[in-house]
């Protein structure tokens, strides 16, 4: 997965892959490659969804500045 891959690009590519698999008529090897790519993209998207989850951190300006200068 390239470093510049973004969630929206991944979704866009997934849509393309699903559509071409749905259309069919692709050689078996190509099908497998597409499926493989689609599976990786889906895993990436799931990671992206999970990565957004975290703590709520509320700090006063001075506190965060202190923490940053540690």
């Amino acid at each position: 997965m390239s470093k510049e891959m973004s969630y929206s690009k991944a979704i866009q590519r997934l849509e393309e892959i699903v559509q071409s698999l749905e259309r069919g008529g692709i050689p078996l090897d190509e099908t497998l490659k597409l499926y493989e790519e689609g599976a990786k993209l889906l895993a990436f998207c799931q990671q992206e969804l999970a990565a957004a989850e975290g703590k709520l951190n509320e700090m006063k300006l001075a506190d965060i500045e202190n923490k940053l200068s540690e």
């Binding site: 989850e53 975290g54 709520l56 700090m59 300006l61």
Partner: peptide
């Protein structure tokens, strides 16, 4: 988005 990560700087 429940639990979306955020840092609030007051």
């Amino acid at each position: 988005w429940p639990g979306l990560r955020r840092t609030i700087i007051g």
